[in-house]
Design a protein around this nucleic acid. Structure first.
Length: 525
DNA sequence: CTCAGGATGAACCAGCCG
DNA sequence: CGGCTGGTTCATCCTGAG
C-alpha cells in the first residue's frame, strides 16, 4: 500500500508535474498523491455527435468535419507554445512531449514544469536510485533550489551525451537501469509446445485490473525505451515473444499486460511453423543453399522489382550451384526483403493474402483497399495467434462476452484474436486514425459480429469526459488493448528513429493517459 | 492533385578473434 | 577488452506517371 502511494506520487511527478511553486497558474488538485491519477480538467464536453444510441450491432463514428476549425486553432496554439518553449531553451522534442502529456490547453508554466519534472526523474534514474529514493528526490525537488540544481545537472549530462532523442547512453557502467536485455529464446512467459521453464509472476498492486490491459510494441526499440514504457505501465515486466516460435514468420515484440499467465491455450489448429509447412508449393523452386526455415519480420514495404530482377540476372548468368559470392548476395537480399522462390531463379515478395495467412487473419481480410495499403496495414499488425494465446485466459473469465477499448486498432488484430478464441465482444470502442483500416475493421465486424462497434478516429481527441461517459454507458471496460505506433522505434526507419518521444511513437503516452482515465472512471463507478 | 514504386542506412546485438 | 563482421529491422522520402 505504501509502495502504491509512492508509485503514484512518482508517476504524478513524471506526468503531471504539479509543482508547489506554480499554484498561481491554476493547478487543479494539488492535494498530494491520492489516487486516482486522472483528473477532470474542465466541465465542457468536447465531443460531438453523441446521440446515446445503443442499437445492438449498430455502429457509430465520431465525425470530425465540424471540428476542423477547432483542430486548426489547436494546431496554431500548439505551434505557438512550442515556439515559446524553444525560446526558453527547451528542445522541440521536450516541448512536444509536454504538450502530449499535459494537453494543448495546458498553461505554459504547467508545460515548463512538466519538462522539468521529467528531467528530474531522468536524473534520478540515471543515478540508479531505488524507487524509494526516487520518490524522495521528486518530493524534495519541488522545493525549489534543489530542483534547479538537478535540472541543471540533467541538462549538462544530456549535453555531454549528445542530447539526442535516441536514448544514447554510455553502456560502460554495468549498473545501467535502462538496459533491458531480451530473453533467449524469446518465448515470453510460456508458449504452446515449448518445453522450457514456465514463468510465474506477481503483479504490483496498482497493476491489477479491472480493467485488464494489453500493450504491444517492437521488442528491438532503441535503448531505454522499454525501461521507460515499463516504468509507466506500473513496473510490469514485459513479455517478449518472437512469433517465429508459433508461426512461420518472425515477429519480435514486447507485450505488457496484467492478464493471468496460467492456463493459456493456443488457437487451434496451430499455424504452420515453417515456410514449407505454410507454402509447400515453394519447395519446388527453393535452392538448397537457401536454408531459411522461417521468414523474417513482415514489414510494411515490399521489395521493388529492381531487387528481384538483379537476383534473377545474377543467378541466370552463373552456374548451378552459383559461386559463394553470389549465394551470399542472394541470401542476404532474400532475408532482407523476405523473398520466396516462385520460379527458376525467381525470388519474389509475399502477396498480401500470404501475409494475412502468416499473421493469422482470415483470407481477404484486407482485400478491397490498395495493395500498397494492404502491405502497410498488415506490416503494422499483430500476429493473431501470439496475441490470442495471451488473451485466451479471458475466455473462462467472461462467458458473457467482453467490453473492449481498442486503441490503435489497425486492422483489428486484437478483435480477430478474440473472435477466433470464441470470445464474444459485447462492445468495442475502437480508436484508429487510418481510414482504410477503419474500413477493413468495419467490413469484418459487419460480417462476423453482433455487438456494438464505436469508431473514433484520433486517440488525442479521446478525453476524460468522453471516456467517463463510455464507462458509465457500458458499465466499464473489461479489456484495454492496443499497440502504439512503432514508427520512431523500428530499426527500418532510416529517417526518424527518434525513440519514444518521436512524432508518432509518443502516442504511447496517450495509451497510458487513456488507460489511467478508464481505471479512474471505473473506480468511481 | 494522388498514388505506386524505387532508393535510401543506421542502431543494436551477438559472436568471433587477436 | 576492443575491433571487426554479420544479422535483423511493425519505415520515410522523392520522383514520375496518371
Amino acid at each position: 500500500m505504501i509502495h502504491g502511494k509512492d508509485r503514484l506520487f512518482r508517476l504524478r511527478c513524471e506526468i503531471q508535474a504539479l509543482g508547489d511553486d506554480d499554484d498561481a497558474v491554476g493547478n487543479h488538485s494539488t492535494s498530494g498523491c491520492n489516487p486516482p491519477i486522472v483528473e477532470d480538467d474542465d466541465d465542457d464536453l468536447d465531443f460531438e455527435n453523441w446521440d446515446g444510441d445503443d442499437d445492438t450491432g449498430g455502429r457509430e463514428s465520431s465525425s470530425d468535419d465540424s471540428g476542423y476549425e477547432e483542430f486548426l486553432r489547436e494546431m496554431s496554439d500548439k505551434d505557438e507554445k512550442i515556439n515559446s518553449l524553444r525560446d526558453m531553451g527547451f528542445s522541440e522534442d521536450e516541448a512536444n512531449m509536454a504538450i502530449t502529456i499535459c494537453g494543448v490547453d495546458a498553461d505554459l508554466s504547467v508545460l515548463v514544469d512538466s519538462i522539468s519534472a521529467s528531467q528530474v526523474t531522468e536524473v534520478c534514474h540515471s543515478r540508479n536510485l531505488s524507487d524509494h529514493q526516487v520518490t524522495a528526490r521528486c518530493f524534495d525537488s519541488f522545493g525549489g533550489r534543489k530542483r534547479a540544481r538537478l535540472i541543471e545537472e540533467s541538462k549538462k549530462k544530456r549535453k555531454r551525451y549528445g542530447g539526442g532523442a535516441q536514448g544514447k547512453r554510455p553502456s560502460s557502467d554495468g549498473s545501467d537501469e535502462e538496459s533491458m536485455p531480451l530473453p533467449k529464446p524469446m518465448v515470453g512467459f510460456n508458449l504452446p509446445g515449448y518445453r522450457g521453464p514456465s514463468m510465474t509472476r506477481v503483479l504490483p498492486e496498482l497493476a491489477t485490473g479491472p480493467p485488464y490491459f494489453y500493450y504491444e510494441n517492437v521488442a528491438r526499440a532503441p535503448k531505454g525505451v522499454w525501461a521507460k514504457i515499463t516504468r509507466f505501465l506500473f513496473d510490469i515486466q514485459p513479455e517478449f515473444v518472437d512469433s517465429l516460435h508459433l508461426c512461420a514468420a518472425a515477429r519480435k515484440r514486447g507485450y505488457i499486460h496484467n492478464l493471468p499467465t496460467e492456463n493459456r491455450s493456443p488457437l487451434l489448429p496451430l499455424p504452420p511453423k515453417t515456410i514449407f509447412e505454410a507454402f509447400p508449393h515453394y519447395k519446388k523452386w527453393w535452392p538448397s543453399w537457401d536454408q531459411r526455415t522461417h521468414l523474417n519480420c513482415l514489414q510494411t514495404c515490399m521489395a521493388p522489382a529492381t531487387v528481384t530482377e538483379r537476383i534473377q540476372q545474377k543467378l541466370s548468368s552463373s552456374g548451378n550451384p552459383p559461386p559463394q559470392s553470389v549465394q551470399k548476395y542472394v541470401r542476404h537480399e532474400c532475408s532482407k526483403w523476405n523473398l520466396v522462390w516462385v520460379g527458376k531463379d525467381k525470388a519474389a515478395p509475399l502477396e498480401p493474402h500470404e501475409m494475412e495467412y502468416l499473421l493469422g487473419f482470415p483470407k481477404d481480410h484486407t482485400r478491397g483497399v490498395g495493395k500498397t495499403q494492404r502491405y502497410k496495414s498488415l506490416g503494422n499488425s499483430f500476429q493473431v495467434d501470439t496475441v490470442a494465446y495471451h488473451l485466451s485466459v479471458l475466455r473462462g473469465m467472461f462467458p458473457n462476452g467482453v467490453r473492449v477499448l481498442s486503441l490503435f486498432t489497425g486492422i483489428g488484430g486484437g478483435e480477430v484474436a478474440l473472435h477466433k478464441l470464441g470470445i464474444h465482444m459485447r462492445v468495442v470502442v475502437s480508436v484508429e486514425i487510418g481510414e482504410a483500416n477503419r474500413q477493413i475493421l468495419r467490413s469484418w465486424w459487419d460480417q462476423t459480429q453482433t455487438g456494438t462497434l464505436i469508431e473514433i478516429a484520433d486517440v488525442k481527441s479521446l478525453k476524460d469526459d468522453e471516456i467517463a461517459t463510455y464507462v458509465r454507458r457500458f458499465g466499464g471496460f473489461d479489456l484495454v488493448i492496443g499497440g502504439s505506433p512503432c514508427n520512431n522505434l523500428a530499426g527500418s526507419n532510416r529517417h526518424h528513429r527518434d525513440g519514444l518521444e518521436g512524432e508518432h511513437s509518443s502516442l504511447f503516452y496517450d495509451y497510458f493517459r487513456i488507460l489511467n482515465s478508464v481505471k479512474s472512471a471505473m473506480a468511481n463507478m
